[in-house]
Write a protein that binds this DNA or RNA. Sequence first.
RNA 1: GGCGGCAUAGCCAAGUGGUAAGGCAGGGGCCUGCAAAGCCCUCAUUCCCCGGUUCGAAUCCGGGUGCCGCCUCCA
Length: 494
Amino acid sequence: MSLIVFNTLGNRKEPFEPLEEGKVRMYVCGVTVYDLCHLGHARANMVFDFIYRYLLHSGFDVTYVRNFTDIDDKIIKRANEEGVDFRVISERYIQAFYEDMGRLGLLSPTFEPKATEHIDGIIELVSRLIERGHAYVVDGDVYFAIDTFPDYGKLSGKNLEELEAGARVDVDERKRNPLDFALWKKSKPGEPSWESPWGPGRPGWHIECSVMSMKHLGDSFDIHGGGKDLVFPHHENEIAQSECATGKIFARYWIHNGFVNIDKEKMSKSLGNIFTIREILEKIHPEVLRFFFAGTHYRSPIDYSDRSIREAKAGLDRIYTFYDRFLRAEEKAPELKEEETASGSVEEEDETALLTLEERFRAAMDDDFNTAAAMGFLFDAIRRLNRYYREDPAQDPESSAFFLKGGEKVTSLLRVLGFLSDDPVSYFRYGIEGKLKEKGISLDRVLDMVREREEARKVKDFTRADAIRDTLKSWGIILEDTPSGTFWKFEEEG
RNA sequence: GGCGGCAUAGCCAAGUGGUAAGGCAGGGGCCUGCAAAGCCCUCAUUCCCCGGUUCGAAUCCGGGUGCCGCCUCCA
């Protein structure tokens, strides 16, 4: 069993063989920090979080680099609008990025370099490209000459004639080829700039990724990732400039994630359907978003809508209900985990299903990180295990032992994908303050009512108990009576 | 116009040429004071259409149709 990944370079699945055995060097294009992160960023980063976590789980020593583009036109524009230094803008959004990604439960990459911290390296790489005849200086700007790289287009599957014919950009007369791109941009007066052999200026967009990836990962490394939209021109250009500078293969496996659509439409500023991560997290638990993303293969487009989120929440609720049962069982009868399995009360089919669970999970993940299939196996296991759950383990130790042992497996695999970072109670009450406030109800009031209802039930005053339950229901609160007490949570909503 | 991708139940979605995972929603039942949660049963003789290859195709090939993405800053 070994990992297969879909490589955009070549457009097919390939066995994954790292340059150095047991070690993976991975670079993922990060964000340009000029605004808050939206759902699309959430998906891209979540997808690579799944990949990162799975590679770690598979035993690889992973060096994961994700950059910040902290100097570019949009940042400058924003800074001008606010009348502040561009660093004020970039720092602000870098902090916001950390907050958002932290809340999404993403593991931190090994390195998170910033473009402005690598200006020397950028100048050096650009100089080398000029020396080697792959770049030329025009009036303070430096361009990469794509005609000097015969492989140009190999990633995106384009050929030069088509590209030139289809070029819609305004043709800059100073470029030798309309598709030549800027490595270094001369700065206009008042713009942030760094000294360089070609005069004051700043790096072009593509060059920073080549410099930062090679600095941390070497001239050649294993995985380079990003959103599908980066294939052309960004990644194509990175390959051109990197391979021309070093004469070596740049990244070997190119992984690109699909887009997020909103109600079947592309997210765009003009449609006004861009949701920021923090806006979404006001309403829904971060893991609901994680579950939502895990449900679709990373290369496919995914459609965000009230309905799809409601369905994702329902699915994750099921997982957390199971997790809650598992924790309770573990607390009640920890010794059962040590019990020998072979027991008459467990169906052979269920026993087998649990024994092969990890294998099936791995096979799915090994097949180009198929999280959706992996989740399917986990749900199958959860359904089977729920049959063996007993409120009182002492009544049926054999079943309970099976439930506990299976639960341990299932929860550990869920954690591989970044789930179960919360405890069940706080999961089910996520956003409680905001929700109660919206309805003008205090938490104490809810707690009192739940207590009062329990009292009423004890004395079999079911009319009173049901009345209270109905009232709570009208506030969107669902009650669950269990032998160990009454539990309450919010019902599903958008 | 060029390049690429996708079309699987009411919805979401996986699917390695061998006889359609899983989730959500729905229906019936068990459990429950009643519920909720959970469990059981049920829910695509069929995978956009038409041909072909094959003993056998959702999976491969050819031709349609329909969506989508990239080619311009974009995750």
